[in-house]
Amino acid sequence: MSGMNNGNLVEIRDLRVDFPNPSGFTQAVRGISFSMGREKLGIVGESGSGKSVTGRALMRLLPQAARVRAEALRFDGIDVLGASERQMRTLRGGRIGLIMQDPKYSLNPVMTVGRQISEAWLAHNRSGSGGGGKREARDAALTLLEQVRIRDPKRVLGSYPHEVSGGMGQRVMIAMMLAPNPDLLIADEPTSALDASVQAEILKLIEDLVSARGMGLMLISHDLPLVARFCDRVVVMYAGQVMEELPARDLHRAQHAYTRGLLDCMPSLSKKRARLPTLTRDAAWLERHA
């Protein structure tokens, strides 16, 4: 089914997203370009820089009122802006999984966790050759919860979203998005509420899926050290633009003042500082970047 795309899973060229405001439009994404294959791409940048909007644009999940334009916005060769709504529905929650930043908000509050994961699994496996049944879907849901290291998966299957902790909700969301075996996983702050040990295990699971199944991962995160360790490449965003793109292992040696500023304002366990430095934004950063 893949189109002619030079091996690119995602291709974004000059993407612009504007939101209406009372006096015109606010530019949330201002002409960004990058592409990715079946690799682990990190997207970092300060709050409001357009990371989530970019991920949602790729799934055509932005509100109607948003104005989205691009020279190219393609997933596996498919033109996202030109695709039919039906085509988009098969992509969403099927070939592209999105782990959203607010797990509780994205889970259905009146449906048990088990049913939500089973339905995600069924949606994919019905159309496949297997023709999965209810029992199988439940077993698959249980296995997925075990994979995301939920301690008592049986209890959690029967729980409603408000009955699980923040970190458990995040993992339920991850399990749901992995259920249909996506080609691309967009993970928006997937592990921000998880302690280091669970975080490491979840990332290992995602890593295995990337290498075993050739899944692509777009990891949106504030956690620069995490992205540096885990991803192959990093895109650094500021005010709706890409400031720089670099190999993840070189992130701690980044030259751009903005990226350096982000690295310097993190508290550290080894070094005690009375006050944390904050970012001093340079007006020149707002100018158009090539």
Partner: peptide
């Protein structure tokens, strides 16, 4: 978890 959804620069401001 007041700062887990915040980027590192806003986290520094909030802290």
């Amino acid at each position: 978890e007041p700062t887990s959804a915040l980027d590192v620069s806003v986290q520094a401001e909030v802290l």
